[in-house]
Design a protein around this nucleic acid. Structure first.
Lengths: 211, 211, 211, 211
DNA sequence: TATGAATGAGTATTCATTCAT
DNA sequence: AATGAATGAATACTCATTCAT
């Protein structure tokens, strides 16, 4: 029973990690059909057969990458600390966070677009994807309740619908930055414009929640 | 009075049209890399060489399809009659139209997603794409002015930013319908939910515009 | 019976001519497989169906072009006036002419190379190709006889073999100019080098013919 | 003692060799445009992707085949033993060798013709092609010097020009055998005619070198 | 565990050739 | 006589996937 066993396991773990990271980048940059197993292997520094032995075929690897995108989002959301803020401040913080998050993790948006292009064929096979946003929704529910209790927010706001509204406002300007820049000649990727947009989005949501 | 079909034809204009329609469908359903020239040829009822002789290579055909998507949007917007409505009614109508449009012409959203995945590489080569939304923006500007004049709307609203807001609210729920349905277990493609969303979107925008 | 009939015939003749010239250029520059019917049609300013109706398929057109190359050579040789020169002068003139000819009509060499690459499959089908060089050989025979009679030349020289010798010396430096230039770093396409080569070739042949 | 064949192999070096040999045959028989990657793959007993992975695209493979033709020539010339012959004998041996070589390695002439048809576009990219004939030229230089020293040969003969003369005399009758046979009705591929030609070529060169 | 070698099944693109007017 | 429209059959090249070691 040599020490090498342990190293072997660690290397295996590392290889899996490197493959997954490379796959996430490749799929998000090229879409499913545009992604190349060869490119992923090279980027991860492993041989192609390794990818197949660890993850199965291209579809399976794509599914793993899609799940990873959601997992990374969840990890990011852990950092939010909404409980110690006033309802309005919490909402503003969530809007702001969401916009930043979409901006700083571009592969998430790309993976979502790719997955929706494929009519959600893969995401429905990922069993634990439902749980992912649950924590966020739970917090949102509490914030809404607190806002209603203190009279800041209206009654009858569904947390999921509210989240969809927030996501809508944050998603589109980033997801469609390239076409917007050309079609409307707007500097949608400059910080100053995004700051303004963040502010507008907060304002939109707050006004919407007001009684 | 014979209806023009694709059988026994020798009609260049018709062939061009059939190819373009088929290309728009194929590219929007599969993305650039996933689209097959073969499939387009079969769907259009023409041979592959025709496609190449009329449109050049796959990139060129994709560019033509992308441009066509924008042209169809413009054509749809022509039908809106915003001038004879009150400012608030006009805004509500525009929101409603945009949501309907995204919903009923799914290839537009798909093409935009595909194009943004490719970092806008193609759209910047379409020379007249800027003019396409110009009419709508012009109308939007007038509505905003009328609203300001009568005191319904705030000062300092940029028409492009407003349009981006409207588009954001209408785009995401439809663009991401497949993932939303799975992740949040929401019936985002049912009419009842969309009606509610349409109403919420109008409300969001109107509240935002109020002084 | 309008005058147009006549014009129509003349145009037909002209079209045939234009096609043949374009074909000769295209086949000699690209070889058989590299030549494009489309290119020939464009260069000749006619439609592709015209080519097919006048000359048959690509093989037939190639055969016509090959024959044309020989015909043009024959036409060139008509200009030589060997009878009024001394035997030695006549031989020198023939060598000089051959080199010039190969140099100034590059498609002839290209067509020969192409045809030999194809193992002479086409030339054997051109019925009148044998007669083409006959006049030249006849003259050569007379020169040799005159040289023998006056004691300048040896006995037993075969005119065809002599012509092959002359052609050999003139063909290779022009046919292989591109590779010679690179491999031996010789300026084989400059006039000064060719003048020297012409002189050497004459000298070689004359010395060979001396008793 | 198992002979290396292409069956059940997994031997990169052997595969490369088999591909190169097959490519040399195919390109020399069909020219660049006429050559088929499919044919080469089948002849070499490998799949098409192997060819692309080992040699790049068709142009690259052609370049490798062209270079190989020159390398085989060099290898053949190594066997000549000119140093221990008298100058005249050495020249005769070289002429004889060159004719034999062109005759027995027909792909060399075919490759040269193909390359010259393409205006030497490829050979100028092969970096070491210049060195290939260098050894032969060196030997030729020495022979000429020895001949001059002993008074057998003239002064002022350039080795490259001399080689071009020798090559000219040997190249044409073989390169153009197919057309010569038809046009002049000469049995240029029969051994007896070639023996005579070899003798004439030697005589031509020797007479030319004499003071 | 790991990978260099190998390939079947595509996939965009081309080209000689024919059809319909 | 002439051609714009159209295509079947290649053809170079790619890519996910597996084999043998």
């Amino acid at each position: 029973m040599k020490a090498k066993t342990n190293t072997g396991r660690r290397d295996a773990e590392l290889s899996r990690r490197l493959i997954l990271d490379a796959a996430l980048v490749e799929f998000s940059e090229k879409g499913f059909s545009g992604a190349r197993i060869d490119t992923i292997a090279t980027a991860a520094g492993v041989s192609k057969p390794m990818i197949y032995s660890y993850y199965g075929d291209k579809d399976d690897l794509y599914a793993a990458a899609l799940r990873e995108a959601y997992i990374q989002i969840r990890a990011g959301e852990q950092e939010l600390d909404l409980e110690h803020k006033s309802p309005e401040e919490a909402i503003r913080a969530l809007v702001s966070f969401t916009l930043n998050h979409f901006k700083s993790k571009p592969w998430f948006i790309s993976m979502l677009n790719t997955e929706n292009l494929h009519r959600g064929a893969t995401i429905s096979k990922i069993h634990d994807v439902g749980e992912i946003q649950s924590r966020l929704l739970q917090e949102l529910k509490i914030i809404l309740q607190r806002g209603q209790d203190e009279g800041t927010f209206r009654q009858g706001i569904d947390p999921v619908d509210l989240y969809i509204t927030i996501a809508s406002l944050c998603y589109f300007p980033i997801s469609n930055a390239h076409t917007l820049r050309v079609v409307f000649d707007k500097p949608v990727d400059e910080d100053s414009w995004l700051d303004q947009r963040r502010h507008d989005a907060e304002e939109l949501v707050i006004r919407f929640l007001k009684p």
